[in-house]
């Protein structure tokens, strides 16, 4: 606590930014790995989704949407830009921020894991709809995925991704949340 208070506000902001960006980078780096215990039917946890939830939980919907779009673009770069990941992650950011505003759910690990579970399902469903609209717009027999393929695959992905992401969510949420709490407290004490 004290070490943060001793720093000048601008330096603290720089460090805060570095830590935040560093955590996103860490998420990006861990995304292509498939470590033991992080894989179910070839599907791993959606680290970027966990990050967006951790970010949005105590922030406004706008901030959540912004984070979702940013990380969605990053993921687009890592895989494929069509369909884009920004839509699903932005929606996740907005919804997470809205849930916390109403204070229905207490803030602890279990609720975070539950939110991540629900959000993972929502995000994969959004992606499946994106694929479906792509398919409907170009009704070509040779087009990439058929409707039945999309929705069969969606079931598998949504469940695996939701289970793994919610189990790994505290590993990312806890350190990030603590850091942001400390920064906030230092700012309030100084002002």
């Amino acid at each position: 606590m004290n070490d943060l208070l001793l720093l000048s506000p601008s330096l603290r902001q720089v460090i805060n930014g570095l830590v935040t960006a560093g955590s996103v980078l860490a998420c990006l780096l861990i995304l292509p790995t498939r470590l033991a215990g992080m894989e179910l039917l070839g599907v791993g946890p959606n680290w970027l989704l966990i990050w967006v939830v951790a970010w949005s939980i105590k922030r406004s919907p706008w901030q959540g949407a912004l984070a979702g779009i940013t990380l969605g673009l990053l993921q687009d770069g890592l895989t494929s830009a069509s369909p884009t990941h920004t839509l699903s992650l932005a929606l996740v950011g907005i919804l997470t921020a809205l849930i916390q505003k109403q204070r229905y759910i207490q803030e602890d690990f279990i609720s975070v894991a539950l939110i991540v579970f629900g959000m993972a399902v929502i995000a994969e469903t959004v992606t499946a709809f994106q694929f479906m609209f792509q398919d409907l717009r170009l009704p070509d027999r040779l087009s990439s995925r058929t409707l039945s393929e999309i929705w069969n695959y969606h079931q598998q992905i949504a469940l695996c991704s939701a289970i793994l992401s919610s189990l790994w969510a505290p590993a990312l949420y806890y350190p990030l949340n603590r850091w942001w709490q400390r920064v906030n407290m230092a700012e309030q004490l100084q002002s």
């Binding site: 790995t33 498939r34 993921q75 895989t79 694929f131 992905i157």
Partner: peptide, 14 residues
């Protein structure tokens, strides 16, 4: 092969 797909919908490796 140093990495797998960064998204579940795509089957890619790095």
């Amino acid at each position: 092969i140093i990495g797998r797909s960064a998204d579940h919908w795509w089957q890619q490796v790095t």
